[in-house]
Design a protein around this nucleic acid. Structure first.
Lengths: 230, 230
DNA sequence: CGTATATAATCGAACGGTCGTTCGTTCGAT
DNA sequence: ATCGAACGAACGACCGTTCGATTATATACG
C-alpha cells in the first residue's frame, strides 16, 4: 500500500497494529502462548512473519498490548464502581458492581483464563501488573464493604477476605462456565451467588430481605425449595 | 551400581523411577512445564539425560506419573468422605469434609496451581482425567448436600452449583494463599468460609447456630468489628 | 505531465538457539 | 563373556527474530 507523509501513515500503521493485535489475541486465547507461533499470527493477520515485525517488536510486545486493553477496561470498571458508591450507597452498589463484574468477565472469559494459565510464562513486569489490578479490585470491593459496615447494612469481620470471595466468583464463572453454564444462565448464577455473599455479610437475616432489592418472587425459575421465612 | 538378577533389579529400578519422578515434580511445580528441561530434571536426579530415559519414556510420562499419585490421593479422599456420610450424617460430614479438603489442598498447593496452569499443555487423556476427578469431587459434595436436604439440615436449590462453590474454596486458597495467608491462618480461613457456605445453605439462620459447632467466641484474633449479637 | 528518487511496506530465506529424544560407546558387576 | 546402567555428543525439529532484496507509491523535479 502507498503512503502519504505524516498523519495518514501513522493512522494506517497504528490501525494495522491493532489488527495484528486482535488476530494475535484470537489465536493466543485459543491455543495458548507457546503453541501459537509468530508465523501463525502473521498468517491470521494476512501478512508474513517479516512484515509482522514492522508493526510489533516482539511476542512479548503483543502480550503487553493485549494486556493494556484489558487492564484499561478493568480500571474503568473500578472507577465507575467507586463513583456509584457515593451515589447509590453500599448495599445497592455491591449488588450492581457484582452484576457488572460478572458480566464483564462473561464477555472476556477466555482472556481471564489466559492470564491465569500464562502468568508463569510472562515477563516480571507483566505479572506485576496483573497482581496490581487484582489488588485494586480487592481494595474496591473492600471499600464498598467497609462503607456498608459503617452504614449498618453489613457485618463483615474481614472486608479484604470477603472482597476476595467476590472476586473468586469471577474466576469461578470463567473457569467453570463449561460446567455451570449447563445448570443455570449467567443471571441466575449472579443472583444465586450474590444471595450467598449477602447472606454471609448482611447484618440482618435472611439475605433476600436484607438486600432490599426488587426480586420478583416468582420462584418458578429456581424450581427448588423456597427459603423458609422464620 | 551393581545388580542382582530378578527382583533386586526391579526394585532398584522402580525406586529410582520414583526418585526421578519426585525430582521432576520439584522442578516442574516450581518452574512450570516448558521452563523445566529434561537436562535439569536429570541433574536434579543426579544422573545425565541419557540415563534418564532408562527410567522414564518421555516428559509426558513424567507428568502422568505425578498425576497418578495426586489423583489416587483425591480418590481416596472421596471414598473416605462417602464413608463418613453414613456415619456422621450430612451436617457434620460437610464440615469435616471441607476441613479435610482444604488441608489436602494446603499441602499440595503448588500441585493444584500446576494442574490449572499447565492443563492447556497436556495430552488430551491427561486433561480428561483432571476433569473427571473434578467432576467426581462435585458429585461427592452434591451427595452430602442432597442428603442434608432430605434430613432437613440444608435448603439447597442447586446442590451441584453449591458443590462447585465449595470446590472453588480450594482453588481460592491455592491461588491466593500468598495474599490471604497474610490475613488469616488456614484454620481461620476454613472456619470463615465454612460459615459463609453454611449460612447460605442452612435451613435455619444464623449460620453459626445452625452449624451446631463449637466455636470459641474469643474474637480477639479477628481484631476487626465484632459481630453484633442482636 | 512524465520521470527520477526516496521511502514506505512486503516478502521469505536464513540465523541462532533451545529442547526432547536417540544412539553408540564405555563402565562395572556377575 | 554378558548385560544392565551410565554417559554425553549428536540429531532433528521448531521457534523467535533478523536481514537483504524486491515492490509499490508518494514526493520532487524537469
Amino acid at each position: 500500500m502507498g503512503r502519504k507523509p505524516g498523519s495518514k501513515n501513522d493512522k494506517e500503521s497504528t490501525s494495522k497494529r491493532r489488527e495484528v493485535m486482535m488476530a494475535a489475541a484470537r489465536l493466543l486465547l485459543k491455543k495458548g502462548l507457546h503453541k501459537t507461533t509468530m508465523r501463525e499470527i502473521a498468517r491470521e493477520s494476512g501478512i508474513v512473519v517479516g512484515t509482522l515485525y514492522h508493526y510489533i517488536s516482539s511476542k512479548d510486545d503483543l502480550l503487553t498490548m493485549i494486556m493494556d486493553e484489558e487492564l484499561a477496561a478493568v480500571h474503568e470498571f473500578i472507577r465507575d464502581s467507586e463513583k456509584a458508591l457515593t451515589r447509590l450507597g453500599p448495599l445497592k452498589t455491591l449488588r450492581v458492581t457484582i452484576n457488572r463484574y460478572l458480566h464483564l468477565i462473561d464477555v472476556s472469559q477466555d482472556l481471564q483464563v489466559f492470564w491465569y494459565q500464562e502468568s508463569g510464562n510472562m515477563l516480571p513486569d507483566q505479572r506485576r501488573r496483573l497482581i496490581e489490578v487484582e489488588d485494586k479490585l480487592a481494595v474496591m470491593y473492600s471499600k464498598i464493604l467497609t462503607a456498608g459496615c459503617k452504614s449498618g447494612d453489613f457485618q463483615v469481620k474481614d472486608p479484604l477476605l470477603a472482597a476476595h470471595d467476590i472476586i473468586v466468583l469471577g474466576d469461578m464463572w470463567a473457569f467453570r462456565r463449561w460446567f455451570i453454564g449447563r445448570h443455570c444462565t449467567l443471571d441466575e448464577f449472579i443472583r444465586h451467588q450474590t444471595d450467598l455473599i449477602l447472606s454471609g455479610i448482611s447484618s440482618q437475616a435472611p439475605a433476600g430481605r436484607a438486600a432490599g432489592i426488587k426480586r420478583p418472587n416468582k420462584s418458578k425459575t429456581t424450581g427448588g425449595a423456597v427459603r423458609k421465612r422464620r
